[in-house]
Amino acid sequence: MTSTVRTYLGRLLPQLIALAIIITAISIIFPGFLNLQIQNGRLYGSLIDILNRGAPVVLLAIGMTVVIATKGIDLSVGAVMAICGAVSASLITSGHSLVETLLVTLAVGILCGVWNGILVAVLDIQPIIATLVLMVAGRGIAQLITEGAILTFIDPGLIFIGSGSFLGLPMPVVIWLIFGILVALVVRQTALGMLVEAVGVNREASTLSGVFTPVLLIAAYVLSGLCAAIAGIIAAADIKGADANNAGLWLELDAILAVVVGGTSLLGGRFSIAASVLGAVIIQAINTGILLSGFPPEFNLIIKAAIIVFILVLQSPRFRTAFTYVSMPRAAGKPTEREAK
C-alpha cells in the first residue's frame, strides 16, 4: 500500500512542485495571500478563491482527461457549458423545479456527449473535427435558447450552487471535490482506467482483445459532456444568469491546458485525474496570483503564457531526453535489437 502511495505521489510531484513554487512566489509578493478567515461559518481567503474560481476548469479538466486518454479531444465543452447554462436558466425561469431543472440540464450535457461520442466511435471521425462541429454550432444553439439575451433568474436554490457554501467551503469547490473523487474512484477502482488507457494506446488491438471500444469511447465523451453540464450550471449560478455568448468561452482551451500541465499526453494512454485537477488549480493560481500581485491586468495573458510555456518546456520530450541522456540509449527507433538477448 505504501508503495502505491509513493508511486502516486511520484506521478504528481512535478505538478505539486509547480504549484508550491507559484504559491510561494505569490505569497512573497502579496503577503496576505495565505491568510484564511472564517466568517459566518465559511472560509474566506485567496486560496479558497482559487479553488472556487477554478471550479469550471477543474470540472472540464476531469472529463477532458478521460477523453484525451482515449486519444481524443473535446473542443465542444465550452459551447456545451453555454448550452447547459442556457437550458437551466430557461427551465428555472419558466417555472420548473430545481430538481427538474438540474436533471434535464445534466441530461442535455449527456446528450451532447453522446453526440460527440457517436461521431467519434461509430462514424469514426477524428475527435478534433467531430467536436469542432458542436463547438461551432453549440454557441448558436445556446443563443437560440436564450434568444440572444442574457437570461437572468432569481431562484435561490440554483443561485446557491454558485455562491452558497457547505461545511465552510464554497459550493463549487464542494461539487468538484466530490465529483472528482467520485470519478477518480470509479475509474481506478474498476478496470475502466486500464481499459481506457488500452483503447487510447491501441484501439484496434484493444477491440480485438474484446474491449468494448465504442461504448468506452462514447462513455468518455459522455463524462466530458456531464462535466461541462455541471460546469455550465455553476457558471450560470455564479452570475445568476445564462450568457450564451460568454459562458465557458475558450474554457475548452484552459481545460486542455490543465490536462497537459497535469502531464497527460495529448497522444492518449496513461492519465491521471488528480494531476489534471492540480493542473487546473495551477492555471487558476496563476490567474489569481497575477491579479493579486498588483501587475497591471494587461499583463495577465503574457505572464500566463510564459509560465505555461515554461511548464510545458520542462515536460517536453526533447528537454527530458537532454536530462536523462546519459542513462537513456539513443536507439529510440528499434529497441528490439538490444532487448532480444
Partner: peptide, 16 residues
C-alpha cells in the same frame, strides 16, 4: 498495430 498495446506494461497486456 493489432496485437500489442505498446505503452502499457507487459502485465497489463497479459491481463487485457
Amino acid at each position: 498495430t493489432a496485437g500489442i498495446v505498446g505503452d502499457l506494461s507487459v502485465r497489463e497486456n497479459i491481463v487485457l
